[in-house]
Design a protein around this nucleic acid. Structure first.
Length: 335
DNA sequence: AAATCCGACAACCGCATCGGA
DNA sequence: TTCCGATGCGGTTGTCGGATT
């Protein structure tokens, strides 16, 4: 929404308010008490009438805001819990800056609080990464990196009853992970139903990926156990952006002609199938996050499901996503 | 110990929308 | 149908307290 400010140092409304002897700025305890008492007697609403009759030297708007954002009894105070942060990230990716709409799904939280959270925590990360917080790249980074971490915290907090920590910082590696890759016709045809689909625009879109511990390949990782049913995964991975981003330095080269993948000099051969031994080795080696994410997101040829420890099996893209999410969790900020 | 920086959040502002006269 | 006041929404600013220099 565009903002129009008055040209002078003081807006007309403000000037008029001050001429009428109306107060501005922080509320005092006495004012809070006046407001609460009035609402207790007369109920919410009719804010201008309230402002006139309550004895408060405030505008109706100011009274409303104070009540809704601070004094209302059901307002929840304190840090946002991981599940609340996760919900905000999810809903914002769906609805954008519709703060009040998002707030409706977080009982006890106000749109103002959510907006402030977004601006102070989330946008800060985007600024540091020099990307727009509303960009696809950043949203994918959130999905690929923050959300798994929050899910991990959620699981941890259910056992440890810990207070929420701020979101972990994002790193450039995880940004590279969030780029997009165009599909050729073969790849589009090979999209796995249920979980991975073609967006019809030349890009694949990955739906939620099952991360149940039973399919975990992390060797009983607590992270895998902590991850609930789904983790949002990588959408619209674009090879051209990945390459041009500079984040892939030495990380990998995809030969679109041959359909082969060369990661850090290790030629993995045809991209259609990768053995889990090869990939596990790679996930556990010093390969970069961007390389892994490319592996995770770039190739979705369907094949049989992987089996734990069976080196003769192959990995589906969703399994790669799962492994990548687990690995990223293990790496923490180290990508 | 003082000055400065910075994050968090309360509060304000203008515009949009709604609803009743 | 139009007008106008009330309310809601989202962007921005101001203030405060803790951290850092």
């Amino acid at each position: 929404m565009s903002q129009r400010r008055s040209a002078g140092p003081m807006g007309d409304q403000q000037e008029a308010a001050e001429e009428m002897g109306l107060r501005r700025g922080p509320w005092t305890l006495e004012e809070d008490n006046l407001l609460m008492n009035y609402i207790a007697c007369h109920g919410e609403g009719r804010w201008n009438l309230l402002a006139r009759c309550s004895g408060l030297k405030r505008t109706g708007k100011s009274c409303r805001l104070r009540w809704l954002n601070y004094l209302k009894p059901d307002i929840k105070r304190g840090n946002l819990m991981p599940e609340e942060q996760l919900l905000i990230l999810e809903l914002h990716s769906k609805w954008g800056n519709r703060w009040s709409r998002i707030a409706q799904h977080l009982p006890g939280r106000t749109d103002n609080e959510i907006k402030n959270y977004w601006r102070t925590r989330v946008q800060k990360q985007a600024r540091q990464l020099k990307v727009d917080a509303n960009s696809t790249v950043f949203r994918d980074a959130v999905r690929c990196y923050w959300m798994p971490r929050l899910l991990e915290k959620m699981a941890a907090s259910t056992t440890m009853h810990q207070a929420a920590d701020p979101l972990p910082p994002l790193h450039h590696g995880s940004m590279a992970a969030a780029t997009s890759l165009p599909l050729n016709s073969h790849q589009q045809e090979a999209c796995v139903p249920g979980g991975i689909g073609s967006a019809g625009n030349g890009y694949i879109h990955y739906g939620p990926v099952d991360l149940s511990p039973s399919t975990s390949t992390s060797g009983g990782s607590t992270i895998a156990a902590a991850l609930p049913t789904t983790v949002p995964c990588f959408s619209e991975l674009r090879w051209d952006q990945l390459q041009s981003s500079g984040e892939l330095d030495g990380a990998g080269v995809f030969d679109s002609e041959m359909g082969s993948l060369d990661l850090d000099g290790l030629d993995l051969g045809p991209a259609e199938y990768y053995s889990d031994s090869t990939l596990l080795d790679y996930l556990n080696s010093s390969c970069t996050g961007s390389a892994m994410m490319m592996m995770s997101g770039g190739y979705n040829y369907s094949c049989g499901g992987a089996t734990d420890g069976d080196h003769g099996s192959t990995w589906r893209a969703d399994e790669l996503c799962q492994a990548a999410a687990i690995k990223i969790g293990e790496w923490g900020g180290g990508i």
